[in-house]
Nucleic acid binder design. Structure first.
Lengths: 211, 211
DNA sequence: TCAATTACCAAACAACTGTTTGTTTGGCGA
DNA sequence: TCGCCAAACAAACAGTTGTTTGGTAATTGA
């Protein structure tokens, strides 16, 4: 994500094979003839999320997929484009999880709690598909699209907070940013153990929530 | 902070010139013959804090100091050692600021508020000497010494929280981690404007504090 | 005055980075 | 059977990275 990329970035979204891609012939147990692109995104997400963007090389990603580095460029025009795809995937996954957790519940606090639990789950649990969402700290080096996606995701929490019967004098924006911060920061200290992501989410909310 | 450094790291704390260093002969207006090492640390802190560790090269640091890259290795045996020095400096600075802000106050909430304001100030204000404290997200790639330093800093907040008359059922640890998270996360969204670091600190605390 | 030390320069090093290029493979529709 | 095309390989490219080495002015203590 260096400011000066080595080549100009295309805005295209990669070849996007409309015609069904042919299944990989090689390989022992025939895997699903699944969308190859999605596999790349998922594996890259895991690496970006755990090691960070700058500490993950295209060679790393290629290796875990079982491909040569150059071959990645058939699917994505640049590393940054790959990151955007990964981030976009993570946002849609998290959005789905949060929305599904919320729906059906009536009480505003219960809805927010469900959303927080879903958020923490995506952030800290085995999959950790959401961890890439918070793997980047230097915001001004983030591609514009990514910032847009992040805002889109956080808008859900904006709505949930708006529903809350908060006492006058409590800034909704600060409330939301504080809550998200306290949750996102958990990746710096969380270790699997007695406390689950869900229990942490509940406790964090409990600190904020008035008796 | 790659797990496998290119060379083994020394544990030494750099030459540490006890004898007064000679003033730079070159250069127009004669700067203070100040401790050179401290200048390096300060400039490196600014770069690490704003661009992040991996996006800051030894050449970047050398350039802002007006030195050749290799010359840095006279003062610090490796980039990682330099980072540890920077982090250590940031911790001691922040510790001083927080302790000074707290002392003289009696009320537990007032003490915590003063500490939070000091913390946010160091994090977001012009100097931003504390921003390097939160510039790293992947904790397991952090040098051990840095983790120790971080814990030492956060211990102050541990004490401040312990003083608080919190209602039963509120986990002190979660309270502290949540508060620190909500503050530290502010570097991802704070922009200088109407809201000051101090006002943000107060509002974040106000969300947590019970009426 | 002279040897030692401090703090640097100049130049290179190997390893690694993202990326490009040309080529090959295998299946599918015509 | 033929040509097409998705998807990969193989190999290199140029630039950047942290770091090392050997030398050299300026200052200092003796």
């Amino acid at each position: 994500m260096t400011a000066k990329s080595q080549r100009a970035r295309s805005t295209a979204q990669a070849p996007s094979p409309k015609t069904a891609p042919r299944p990989r012939a090689s390989g022992k147990t025939q895997e699903l003839p699944d969308d190859r692109r999605q596999v790349l995104i998922s594996e890259a997400a895991r690496l970006f999320g755990s090691k960070g963007y700058e500490n993950t090389s295209m060679r790393d990603i290629a290796a875990v997929v079982g491909i040569l580095p150059g071959s990645l460029y058939y699917h994505f025009p640049s590393k940054e484009d790959l990151f955007v795809a990964v981030y976009s995937f993570a946002v849609s996954q998290s959005l789905d999880a949060v929305k599904q957790a919320v729906e059906g519940r009536d009480d505003a606090w219960a809805r927010l709690e469900a959303a927080c639990i879903a958020h923490m789950h995506g952030l800290l649990d085995k999959n950790r598909f959401a961890s890439v969402l918070v793997s980047h700290l230097a915001v001004d080096t983030l591609p514009e699209q990514v910032v847009t996606l992040r805002d889109k995701y956080e808008a859900v929490f904006k709505d949930l907070v708006a529903e809350l019967p908060l006492p006058a004098g409590v800034d909704q924006r600060i409330f939301r940013l504080g809550l998200l911060g306290s949750m996102n920061w958990a990746i710096t200290w969380y270790r699997p153990g007695v406390e689950t992501p869900a229990s942490i989410a509940r406790k964090l909310l409990n600190v904020i929530r008035r008796a």
